[in-house]
Each structure stands twice: as C-alpha cells, then as structure tokens.
Design a protein around this nucleic acid. Structure first.
Lengths: 114, 114
DNA sequence: TGTATTTAGTTTATAATGCAAACTAGTTAA
DNA sequence: TTAACTAGTTTGCATTATAAACTAAATACA
C-alpha cells in the first residue's frame, strides 16, 4: 500500500492531542487523580471529563470514584492494558509511517531526479 | 513545562491525518498532480479539494491550474518552503514530546517506585 | 443558624471540522 | 444530440472538541 494511506488508519481516539496527552500521562503514572491529570495536561475540567468518558467507553482507561475521608469526591484514573497496547500501537504506526515515507521519498528522488 | 501540555501546541493543520498524508506526499514529490495525490492518499476528490484549500490558505502549498493541450484542466500542487518548514517542525515536536515523556516517565517511576 | 464560597467534577450548547454527495463546466463517445 | 466521462468545487450533514453553565456536597464566616 502507498504509505500515505496508512495515516488514515491512525487510531483517532489516541491521535487527538488532548487525549494523546492524557494517555501519555497515564502511561507514565500507574494511577492519577483527576485534578493531577488536569494540571499535567492543562485541559479544562469539562474538556478533561468528556475526553475521559470517551477513553473509558473504549476501555482505554479505568475510572474509579471514591471519597477522601468519606467526604471529598476523588476520581482516579488508570490506563488499562487495552489502552496501553493501543498507545504502543499508535507510536509504532507513527514510526512505520515515517519510515516508509522516507523510503518512498528516496525511491521517488531516484525515479525523478533533479 | 509539563511535557503533556506541549501536545496541545501541535500544528493542527498538519496533525490532521488527511493533511499529514498530503503534506508528506508533497514533501517527497517536488510537484504532484491533483489526481496523483488523490491516489497516493486515498482521499475522495471533495475531501482532497477542501484540505488543499486549507493548506493553500496557510501558504503551506502552492496550487497551479493549467490546461493540458489547452483542454483538460490540470491542477498541480507543490509544497512551499513555509509548508516544508512546518512539516519539519511538526516531526521535531513529535520527537521532542516522545523524548520528554519518556524522561518524565522514568523520573516518575523513581519518585514513586512499585 | 443561614448564606456565601469553594471544590470536584458533569452536562449542555456552540463553534469548528472532516467528509462525501451533489453540483459545475467542459470533453469525448455513440 | 444526448449520454457519459473528467477534473475538480461547493454544499450539507454528522461528528467532535471546547468551555460555559450547571450540580452536589463541604467549608467559611458573620
């Protein structure tokens, strides 16, 4: 297949920058609180919340709600094995795309020099 | 800055997969015809056309219209120096993000082992 | 005690965007 | 002469990212 068609297959759930940053942060922390994650990513609360919902729906993250000292609500987020795998796949695909694009570029410059 | 905030700054004009494939293809070819580019990327004509318009508006590509044997319209597309630079910057930023994310990940696992 | 503010999120409304179907304008075929 | 093809553009629709508005509970303070 032509290398460029491969880009259309990138996992859009991960590709979106806000979610890519969430997923990357979660891959680094084994578990993160909502507010900590918000600070790391710089997203607004509403934005965080809706992106997390999408990731949860895809089973990329696990969201746990509990209460601190039985009072203050605390939401914790973990990446799931599915999510972790998807992130790895995503970067692998990015690498592959860059590699074959570079190859194709070289072949083209040989075929049509100057 | 936290690494994850950097993702929000990715050039969205290039980040979008359809346009990333257009830009990558154009970086490889010095000049491409509309239909050739369409075949390379697998995009529909309508889709190609609107993405190219956006890239043109940003001065990332140069679009030339001419007529083959004075009859058949032929659109040729070239990447501009601005576009080429933007693409290079984009990949540089991706690399940087991955690097600092990896670093941050290591630091975190030292700070919070287990 | 009551009311004002803060905290921790969720829901809603909006604006932007990607996408292909429908359209345009010209060419060739039957 | 009308039907079908070519090379693209425009339009309308569905999806999506975003922040503002909202909810529900806890605390401050007067």
């Amino acid at each position: 297949m032509m290398p460029f068609k491969e880009m259309a297959r990138l996992d859009k759930l991960i590709h979106e920058p806000a979610r890519l940053s969430i997923m990357s942060a979660l891959e680094a922390c084994s578990m993160a609180e909502f507010l900590f994650l918000q600070e790391l990513t710089g997203l607004t609360k509403g934005n965080m919340s809706s992106h997390l919902s999408k990731l949860e729906k895809a089973n990329y993250v696990l969201i746990g709600k509990s209460f601190l000292r039985k009072k203050i609500p605390q939401t914790t987020i973990q990446i799931t094995p599915t999510g972790s795998q998807a992130l790895i796949e995503y970067w692998k695909q990015i690498d592959h795309i860059r590699e074959i694009t570079k190859q194709w570029s070289q072949e083209t410059s040989i075929a049509f020099p100057g």
